[in-house]
Simulated scan of single mutants.
Amino acid sequence: MNIRLTPLLAVSSIFILSCSSGVEDPFTKTTVPVIGKVTVDGQEPGGSIQIKCFNKGETDQEHPTVSGGFTKKDGSFELSTYTTGDGLPVGDYTLTFVWKKLDLMTRSYGGPDKLKKRYDDPKKSKIEVSVKESEAPIDMGVIELKTK
């Protein structure tokens, strides 16, 4: 019986070691934290506004990234790529904003856009951030959105 378990234990040990937190994906890009705050018509939104980040440069076809986040009720946000709040890889980005209903019970985000699709198109959005290699977070300050 022990003879059969030995190969299984060896394979399990290798798998566990390869999944340890000390091993990093070789294709993970360095990120810089990006924070800010969103207001809507001069007020805190009181709900989750979805933020998506679109790289203005060439997309890495082999190892693409998806970055974005959601505002908190007070409008504050931190953008993420790999883990919560880790930031964005170096590059120039256009940001889009969509404000729908976040249902925590069903884990869905839907309904009409309360911003009336004013900020949902990366080709039309004028909200941008340039990320350079840095250890300090980038603070985008207050981004003022309007519904009217």
Rank of each mutant, 00 (worst) to 15 (best):
27 F>D: 12
98 V>E: 13
68 G>V: 07
97 F>E: 01
112 P>I: 07
81 T>W: 00
1 M>D: 14
74 D>T: 08
70 F>L: 14
107 R>W: 09
84 T>S: 14
62 E>C: 10
84 T>K: 15
148 K>V: 09
102 L>N: 03
124 K>R: 14
128 E>L: 10
58 E>F: 12
10 A>R: 14
105 M>P: 05
34 V>D: 02
135 E>C: 07
76 S>C: 04
30 T>R: 14
103 D>L: 08
138 I>G: 01
15 F>T: 14
82 Y>I: 00
110 G>R: 00
77 F>G: 00
26 P>R: 06
56 K>E: 15
83 T>Y: 11
118 R>G: 06
140 M>R: 05
35 I>R: 04
43 Q>E: 15
4 R>P: 01
77 F>K: 02
10 A>C: 15
60 D>G: 03
21 S>V: 11
53 C>F: 02
63 H>P: 02
7 P>G: 05
42 G>V: 00
48 S>F: 10
42 G>F: 02
144 E>H: 14
67 S>I: 07
54 F>C: 09
88 L>S: 02
42 G>I: 04
63 H>M: 06
53 C>V: 06
7 P>W: 13
15 F>E: 10
126 K>F: 06
84 T>P: 05
126 K>A: 13
68 G>D: 04
104 L>P: 05
63 H>Y: 11
130 S>P: 09
30 T>A: 13
44 E>I: 13
42 G>N: 01
56 K>G: 02
141 G>Q: 08
143 I>S: 03
83 T>W: 10
74 D>P: 05
83 T>N: 11
4 R>F: 11
87 G>W: 02
22 G>E: 06
35 I>A: 03
5 L>A: 12
22 G>N: 11
79 L>E: 01
81 T>Q: 04
5 L>I: 09
20 S>G: 15
68 G>H: 02
85 G>W: 03
95 L>A: 01
22 G>A: 10
128 E>Y: 08
103 D>W: 06
68 G>Y: 02
83 T>K: 13
114 K>S: 11
49 I>L: 04
108 S>M: 10
23 V>T: 07
144 E>Q: 13
11 V>W: 06
114 K>F: 10
91 G>H: 00
126 K>T: 13
123 K>Y: 09
71 T>N: 03
80 S>Q: 01
72 K>V: 09
66 V>D: 09
65 T>G: 03
3 I>G: 06
104 L>F: 14
65 T>K: 04
137 P>D: 04
108 S>V: 05
91 G>D: 00
34 V>H: 04
39 T>N: 02
51 I>N: 01
